[in-house]
Amino acid sequence: MINFFLGHYGYWFAILLMCLGLYGAIMKKNLIKKLIGMTIFQTAIIIFFVASSSKWGATVPIFDEKIGVANTAKYINPLPHTLMLTAIVVGVATMGVALALVITTYLRYKTLDESVLLKRMKKDNDN
């Protein structure tokens, strides 16, 4: 039982972050806070993947003469790391687009509160 928690503390941490991120993204009204929540969520997933690639007693996946090539259990799995490089880039790009949208929204509506924005949007010319 203890092992279930201690042995997977990386995953538990990631899940905690995911819940925090989701909570922020969904429940918060301020656009920036939603954005932060979404980013936390995405980062948590990245942490999850990276945690999944680790092995007990293994080292970074760069060729080490002392260990050799055949003994793959001594190297951690590089694949999730490479996948996460892509995911990090995606996260950065998404944040960039989101910030651009937030700036435009602020310039047009002078507020970043979602409920106020929705009310004002409805009042504007509907089509």
Binding site: A25, V102, T104, Y109, L117, M121
Partner: peptide, 10 residues
Amino acid sequence: APVAAFRYLI
């Protein structure tokens, strides 16, 4: 539009 796009983004 930006607000709609932002909500879609999230």
